[in-house]
Amino acid sequence: MGFIEFLFTRNQMVLRLLLEHIWLVLFAIIIAIIVGVFLGLISAYYPIISKIILPFTQITMTVPSIALMGILIPLVGIGMINAIICLVVYSLLSIVRNTYTGIKEIPEEYIEAARGMGMTKRWILFKIKLPLALPVIIAGVRTSIVMIIGIGAIMSYIGVGGLGDLIFRGIARTSRNMILTGAIFVSILSIVTDFFFGKLENYFVKKTS
């Protein structure tokens, strides 16, 4: 059976796995944004905490994903929770780091002008700092999401479905078509997401310069 023919006969399954993959990544990235931006902000405001958080997020990146999955099994078992934790942990580095740099790199003049006009700290955070750091934060999210689309495929190993299923099943059955379908769709998903976030980033860069 040719590759194109395979795609047409299995289109229902491919679509289902693609959607599963998207949901998994989306769910993980939303949690990662909430946690990551929060940790990034704390790091930017309190230098002592940044000395713990920033190296910590960096170290977690060096743990192979398959190992992290394994470490988590005795704690949360296999399945969705395990996968989400893994993906969030891998997303954190770029998001935390970019939030931190984004806030730190805002020219002092803006902050001083804001303070000089009697803005409260909370106003400065929500009206000045976060909007100005937004392009950098989005760049961090972009890196993370593209990365976890790839890592998400490995998560099929602990039974969460997604495009990884095609790859693992393909390997088990030595079905070249299956492997190829899984790999190509993971790539397409990455490229489309990257393109979309690139546009989003550009939009906010223009808005803040």
Binding site: E112, A113, A114, G116, M117, K207, T208
Partner: peptide
């Protein structure tokens, strides 16, 4: 209170102080 004080004092710095966003 510094917030109160600053709202009653106009403050102009070099042009870069305008919020770009």
């Amino acid at each position: 209170d510094p917030i109160e004080l600053r709202r009653n004092i106009g403050y102009v710095i070099q042009e870069i102080g305008l919020f770009p966003h």
